[in-house]
Design a protein around this nucleic acid. Structure first.
Length: 548
RNA sequence: GCGCCUGUAGCUCAGUCGGAUAGAGCACCCGCCUUCUAAGCGGGUUGUCGCUGGUUCGAUUCCAGCCAGGCGCGCCA
């Protein structure tokens, strides 16, 4: 389903091509024409600068070019007026009744309004969080838990086939230290140097001992505590509405032979070499600043070897695009991972996409809460949710682009005020729900056969319709750029426009006023708005309450 | 030294195929509920878009260099 704006843009492109054909213009027609929504509402519903772009090649004044196109654009269906402004902008005003047909489209599409096909048929592997199963998920993981899950939903809405995946780092030295730490806690011994110090280690020790009487070796402690800790992470993410299709164990990568297989594949591609007794991957062929070791001199595999094998494994499982979401402290991995893709014979500009999330600071009571990754004072995902709730936590983390560092103020998130944007959006939804309850009670007919689009000609209604029309574009762009925050920002704008409409356009009959077509029309407009807010919040994994 | 990210209003931040007078919230001031949810709406005040050049009809946006801040650069995991 293409939007009205897309249809218009295509039509205008046809007109430009025709003008060139007829010799009225010289130069080549652009591949596509962009219709933008002018900031200033006096500039119509849509505007294009196409005349300014064409003027030079045509050897004409931009306003002349615009004038040339003006008449033909005016004849297009759904267009009521075309103005030329400034240096040569073409401002288009839509026919209002025609625009109001959008309400019908939204209500019949329902929960899928806004969904598109831009990534149809593309299989995306979305890996995020991927924590060690050696402790609770903390604030850094939480940003990805929210953004990653929202991005997955957005990509699906754009038609992609998405696999959300959590890579469990359950192999290596950190796991051994973890086992030794839990064992020490259970026996009342001091935690080893470099071990895990947090309070939760003691709790794990108690659980492990209770469930496994007679447990003795640090390996057994490691395995038992691993299971408990992983289950806890899974449970917390469940409450945070973050879902994974696959929990992928690093161990399984080795056990299944996938690492050997990956290594073999890289050898075939000719980028593996030996030096100083170790086996290397020549990542510097593809932009990395140094080559990377796959097998150490002592014969052990590096963590990097797992990474490469895992990438190859994802691709062989059918993923076209592998998206990695990493913390800022891992940004050194960008070139490395892209080089891995290139070494495997892939196109790093298409098959792999590394997103880097900057750090999250958390403020409470005017002071920064310090984070310490493996020691005591960790703010965990569970604690954050306990403080502010799932909706506020998710929404706040999602509404900023991930490449900017962000500050979460616990005090603001706790407050039910306008400073807290999630309430602003949810309130709009609840407000509409209340209006529609009243509509039903008064018996105002709302079926689409009672919907007369010509009733909607107030400026506020027009503005609301224009904003609703943008939603599919926003979703497509959020998917394309991997930026779910765009959906959140759009919802804030939509909520604002609705509140403005609500202030000026009464939906229910006033006093003993008779029920008229305008009431049905507005009720349907409200229902359409509610649908779009609900769809948008769903893409963020945030609830859309009927009452607040 | 190399690499990634950031620099927009007093504060927190939006703003990508380059567009018209650079936006929002908070804060500050003033209005609006005896009929739809005031967690709302309307109005007022606030800017060398880090700096310097380049590209062009036009640059906060693209390019180069510089300045400032954050983070990282192991045969660790």
């Amino acid at each position: 389903m293409s939007s009205l704006a897309d249809q218009l843009a295509a039509s205008i492109q046809g007109l430009v091509a025709a003008a060139i054909e007829k010799g009225e213009l010289t130069g080549s027609a652009p591949e596509s024409i962009v219709l933008e929504r002018p900031k200033n509402r006096d500039h119509g519903d849509y505007a294009t600068s196409i005349a300014l772009q064409l003027a030079k090649a045509a050897g004409k004044n931009p306003r002349e070019v615009a004038t040339l196109l003006q008449g033909a654009i005016e004849q297009l269906p759904g267009v009521s007026k075309v103005d030329i402004a400034g240096p040569g902008f073409i401002n288009i005003t839509l026919d209002r009744a025609n625009q109001a047909e959008l309400v019908r489209a939204i209500l019949s599409s329902g929960a899928t309004y806004g969904y598109g096909q831009s990534l149809k048929g593309v299989a995306v592997n979305l890996e995020f969080i991927s924590a060690n199963p050696t402790g609770p998920l903390h604030l850094g993981h939480t940003r990805w838990a929210a953004v990653g899950d929202a991005l997955g939903r957005v990509l699906k809405a754009a038609g992609a086939k998405v696999t959300q995946e959590f890579y469990i780092n359950d192999r290596g030295r950190q796991m051994d230290l973890f086992g030794q730490s839990v064992q020490a806690a259970a026996l009342g011994n001091p935690i080893p140097e470099d071990g895990y110090q947090g309070e939760y280690i003691k709790e794990l020790a108690k659980i492990v001992v209770a469930e496994n009487p007679g447990i003795a070796t640090s390996e057994d402690f490691r395995e038992a505590a691993y299971r408990v800790q992983l289950a806890e992470q899974q449970a917390v993410l469940e409450t945070f509405h973050t879902k994974f299709d696959i929990w992928f164990s690093e161990r399984s990568l080795h056990d299944s032979g996938a690492v050997d297989h990956g290594m073999e594949k890289l050898r075939e591609q000719g980028h593996v070499f030996e030096q100083d007794g170790a086996v290397w991957l020549r990542t510097t062929d593809f932009g990395d600043d140094k080559d990377r070791v796959l097998i150490k001199e002592n014969g052990e595999l590096t963590y990097f070897a797992s990474d490469t094998a895992y990438y190859i494994n994802k691709r062989e499982r059918g993923s076209d695009i592998c998206i990695y979401m990493l913390g800022a402290d891992h940004h050194g991995y960008i070139h490395r991972l892209r080089a891995v893709a290139a070494c495997a014979g892939d196109n790093p500009d298409y098959n792999i996409h590394v997103l880097i999330g900057q750090l999250v600071k958390i403020m409470e009571g005017g002071e920064e809460v310090k984070l310490s990754k493996r020691a005591g004072t960790i703010i965990t995902l569970a604690e954050l949710v306990e403080k502010v709730g799932v909706d506020a936590a998710r929404y706040t983390l999602i509404r900023y682009p991930v490449d900017t560092p962000m500050v979460m103020d616990i005090d603001i998130l706790r407050s039910n005020t306008n400073e807290n944007p999630v309430y602003y959006v949810q309130y709009a939804h609840a407000r509409i729900a209340a209006v529609l309850r009243n509509v039903a009670e008064l018996g105002i007919p709302t079926g689409l056969d009672h919907f007369d689009p010509a009733q909607l000609n107030h400026d506020r209604e027009n503005q609301l319709l224009g904003t609703l029309a943008e939603f599919p574009r926003v979703v497509a762009q959020a998917a394309e750029l991997r930026e779910p925050h765009r959906v959140a920002r759009y919802l804030e704008e939509l909520a604002g426009v609705y509140h403005g409409f609500y202030a000026d356009c009464r939906v229910l009959p006033l006093g003993d006023e008779a029920i008229a077509p305008i009431h049905s029309a507005r009720a349907n407009l409200c229902a359409a708005t509610m649908q779009v807010i609900a769809n948008g919040l769903d893409l963020l994994g945030v609830s859309a309450p009927e009452r607040m």
